[in-house]
């Protein structure tokens, strides 16, 4: 527990936290800009199936409040990404996202598509997310220049834990997805024809057959391999917290998993995959690397890890500081 606490509350970079803010808030703005939310208006009360806090509401709102909520959410998320009054705009954007997605989940089925994004944003709600790469920081710097004060330290305990909590959320989401399969289905999730039937059903219920789904489903051995690989990937994802090099495999592999789900079942988990990339990539390092245009001699301003010796080391450093 002490080691976990030491890891959790180790100092972090203001820029790394800012990059996570920019990434997650931009993603939230894009997700909230989708037209699906306006389509929620006019739902008959009889079809309302509330989840969680949605029980407090008698039904889904009409078109007007939905549009206001959506516009407010997109604007606030965009401002939070730019780092303008992030202490206010980020919580406003998150609340709009929470409400709108809770409404989507109140149609009869809990949707997980945006859940990881929303949960990853929770630690950022109370963190100093706009101390770097933000309009707030530029404004503060101008004030300091005028008053003659020094610059902020780029590394602090306050900047480290929000990113690590977000990492734990992504890790936990994959692990618990795998755990659920083991608890509710056991080995038969892999060893039975489970994945074949999932893919056949997905294809048979769509207007035109899905050739990718059928390619896997028609080959029992391939379906077993894909099911086994999926379960293994989900259950072992937490290893990225133990060995940072493993992130170079796990993050692209999970992006591939989500791409496969989209290709075979037409289910969009892009927000989940992008949240993982945003949280695990060391963006300040990547920016610095791109700026210099070479690997050797690149200083690491954000971590205590040394210079990358090889391309593999560089990739490992980009993913997960």
């Amino acid at each position: 527990m002490r080691r976990l606490e030491e890891w959790m509350f180790a100092p972090g970079s203001a820029r790394r936290l800012a990059a996570v803010r920019i990434g997650l808030c931009s993603l939230l703005a894009l997700r909230l800009a989708r037209p699906v939310y306006v389509g929620l208006s006019g739902q008959p009360r009889a079809l309302f199936r509330p989840v969680s806090f949605m029980h407090m509401f008698p039904g889904l709102p009409s078109r007007g409040p939905l549009i206001v909520l959506q516009l407010l959410g997109v604007m606030a998320a965009t401002l939070a990404a730019a780092g303008l009054r992030a202490r206010v705009t980020l919580p406003v954007a998150w609340t709009c996202g929470l409400l709108l997605n809770a409404m989507l989940s109140s149609l009869g089925k809990i949707l997980h598509n945006d859940v990881v994004l929303l949960i990853c944003l929770v630690p950022l709600l109370v963190a100093p997310v706009a101390d770097a790469w933000s309009l707030d920081a530029i404004r503060k710097r101008r004030t300091r220049r005028e008053t003659g004060e020094g610059r902020d330290a780029p590394v602090s305990v306050a900047y480290g834990w929000p990113v690590r909590v977000a990492m734990l959320v992504v890790t936990g989401a994959y692990f618990f997805s795998g755990l659920g399969k083991v608890v509710f289905s056991g080995p038969s999730w892999v060893l039975s024809g489970n994945l074949r039937w999932i893919l056949y059903t997905a294809s048979d219920r769509s207007a035109s057959p899905n050739v990718v789904a059928l390619f896997v489903a028609d080959r029992a051995w391939l379906a077993h391999i894909v099911a086994g690989a999926t379960l293994l990937l989900e259950l072992t994802f937490p290893l990225v917290l133990w060995r940072k090099r493993l992130a170079t495999f796990y993050v692209p592999a999970t992006a591939g998993l989500h791409a496969g789900i989209w290709l075979t079942m037409n289910l969009d988990y892009s927000a989940w995959a992008l949240s993982a990339v945003i949280v695990f990539v060391d963006w300040p390092w990547l920016v610095e690397w791109l700026r210099r245009g070479r690997l050797k001699g690149t200083p690491r301003a954000t971590t205590t890890i040394g210079e990358p010796a090889t391309l593999a080391d560089a990739a490992a450093d980009i993913l997960y500081a």
Partner: peptide, 24 residues
Amino acid sequence: GATGLDTWSLTGFRLFSRVRVEHE
């Protein structure tokens, strides 16, 4: 996550967790 409790937006992450059978 560990108990499968759905208190949205914290969820039990039960994604395709039940085994499907051959019969649709």
